[in-house]
Amino acid sequence: MFHVELKNVNKWYGELHVLRDINLKVTRGERIVICGPSGSGKSTMIRCINRLETHQKGTIVVDGAELTNDLKKIDEVRRDVGMVFQNFNLFPHLTILENCTLAPIWVKKMSKREAQDVAMHYLRRVQIPEQANKYPGQLSGGQQQRVAIARALCITPKIMLFDEPTSALDPEMVKEVLDTIISLAEEGMTMLCVTHEMGFARQVANRVIFMDAGQILEVNEPNAFFSHPQHERTKLFLSQVLH
């Protein structure tokens, strides 16, 4: 059974056809990097996987559970899928520790003590345990994104979704976040990552997917993808990105 399966997924925003017949099968432990020009539907696709966006046609099955309008099923899926956003989306009125313990306490029903232990474990994992009692506004962008990763990990998800995690960061901070994600990958986490960081893709991905205008145009393992792109659009995109 596949960990994540998208079958003939289609989505429209009114008249605009943003996802066209998306077919994707992700096995357990697989790392997928999705790239493509802006507006190609990459973010929309992964946001459909945790139902932040709804699809109108086709089926999406996450770890055996199909995503429909059933709210209970959606919450179940979300408990196993962690997401990291481009704009971090940390909760500004809570401390770092409180940001991380929120889900364990209210979703996993842990006690405050247990939740704090879990939170500190993951904050150590992303190497910022000393910031636990600060507020998000007091941290740099790279630190905030690492907190966001820790926060997503605190619900011990089976799948991690990354929506352009380094796009809003200053260049000096991109490496620290990518290193964190790479170490996660080495532990065998299933992940789908939308990114423009091609070096990262080469290092981490099992498969690289190129999307344009709502369609998956090319899928390949990284070496083949970067050295022998098949599709014209892919070649054009890579020539623009890899300068």
């Binding site: 945790n50 919450d75 704009n87 989306n89 929120l102 209210w106």
Partner: peptide, 15 residues
């Protein structure tokens, strides 16, 4: 409140 706050909460499974 930015939409991202609602999304972050939803993505963690908070009802």
């Amino acid at each position: 409140i930015p939409k991202g706050q609602y999304e972050a909460a939803a993505s963690m499974g908070l009802s």
